[in-house]
Design a protein around this nucleic acid. Sequence first.
RNA 1: GCGGUGGUAGUCUAGCCUGGUCCAGGACACCGGCCUCCCAAGCCGGUAACCCGGGUUCGAAUCCCGGCCACCGCACCA
Length: 570
Amino acid sequence: MGETPDKYEILQDLMRRRGFAWGSFEIYGGSRGFYDYGPLGATIKRKIERKIREAFQREGFFELETPDITPEKVFIASGHVEKFVDPLVECKKCGARFRADHIVEEALGIDTEGMSAEHLTELIREHGIKCPECGGELGEVWYFNLMFETKIGPYGDQKGYLRPETAQGIFVNFKRLNAFARNKLPFGVFQIGKAYRNEISPRQGMLRLREFTQAEAEIFFNPKEIEHPHFDEVKDEKLRLYPIEHQLKNLGEIELTAEEAVKKGYIMNTFFAYYMVMVKRILLDIGIPEDKIRFRQQLPEERAHYSRDTWDAEIHSERFGWVECVGVANRGDYDLSRHMRESGTDLTVLIHYDEPRIVKHLKVSLNMKRVGPKLKKDAKRINELIQSWDEEKLRNLVEVLERDGRITIEGYELERDDFIIKEVEEKITGEKIVPHVLEPSFGIDRPFYLLLESSLVIEEDRTYLRLKKDMAPIEVAVLPLVAKEPLTSIAYEVFRKLQKKGFIAVYDEKDTVGRRYMRYDEIGTPYCVTIDNQSLEDNTVTIRDRDTREQTRVSIEELPEKLRELIFGE
RNA sequence: GCGGUGGUAGUCUAGCCUGGUCCAGGACACCGGCCUCCCAAGCCGGUAACCCGGGUUCGAAUCCCGGCCACCGCACCA
């Protein structure tokens, strides 16, 4: 795949050796699916998180922080207990494992969506479905849930899970967040934190972890208002899309502006498109090259149980191909509706009409004075039943009464005078809706790896990380040309000055200067400041550029400002 | 989880087949010192390893079994 076959090994080695990242728990033999961030890696990871946080904040989103450990009820409501599972079946003969639903679907051509393990087992027995590998007999189907279980409290009576996504922490707080937003849609809330998935078989280094970091934003909006007010600001941004039908018909990717994508129906609305552009811009800001970013629309069978439509931002890896890094999902009202049902809490938002509407409608109730003695205990129940009827049903009732003078409800014959019928006028100021949710969900660990991979440059005489300058974990190295006084003292002072100005800086006098340049090139330090004999005469130093190796001379006085401009473009 | 291959200092590796001469050799890196006024690999010195557990044997880096981890393929990846 890559032009340099061992680039991945070189990067893995570099990451371990220079303190970026490595497999966790090494001294005890390691554990798959867990990675440690070393000093330089942790710094880059924080910088990625910071870029995402700042981008969300620029949109006016609120940040939130909620627990990793979550009571079971939350995930029963969210559907994760039921749906975040794979039905597995094992061949009794060769031990191979398969997705039971896939096997049944393939053999019988039926939809197995939502089937129980027992049902699947039954179908396999009935139809004599055999192991696709060796033709052996298949065992019982069992569900494997990908969430880590835990017990809350000393008695182990409350079951909990480590959250498989940070999103639920936002949904369960919707009522408070909506109050905070003063009942005004749309608004966005984000959380940056850990999530956990007990992957059956983690592979591919840092790309499939059992514990990982997400930055998820949930944007709550009125499904009737799907034009983004600031779409104009992003409409000309080019997007590289790989829509469903292009995947199915092998038509390849298309590139068009956000505006065209909406007009031609590839993206459902400007609201969705706006956030896709936002995601792209964040990835660019982190330093992912534009030509390595595309949006692929998930096929229906790939989508999560809560998703109506999902576009993944994928980043191309020389090693692993296209890697899903950000999901932009339309979750509809799935989560809020489910939490509303399970918790009994009202999670609707009142949408005010421009002007209050006067609505005439029928109000029908039992005349309790009359029917009480007749219906006894059932009077109240039937009255409530009638109250729950909609306008159309009530009109039918009245019609029958006017015509026949009587009607039978639940076995009781009731007369016209048993009812109180009123035409009332009601002033309606608005409508309660369950907001819909658009979710841009960033993985942090994957872009971290892909940033390093795409930054790695292997040249004849050096290997270095051409990181975006403001992403470098060490921003500037201060080097006396040789380790001799007074160069060392001056260099140290310059170093301290830069540190105090807020740069992530190091001082280094060890080894020849060329060797030191290589050392800092390798970890992506964009600039080395060198103090030489001329510095003694005129208080100037040189700034050496990582990518071009060119040097320019500036006064010590101007150095911090100059570096700030070079690194942060300010 | 299945099958294959592998696991020796920070990294790459020699040794393993043919057990003892290996308190494990080399290179690079790292640390201390010397030299050095601009792009790694000059000199001197130093630190540092047989994945874990069990077995066979007088004796195991070496042979056998189990585990863990890595890589590849299959399966899995809401």
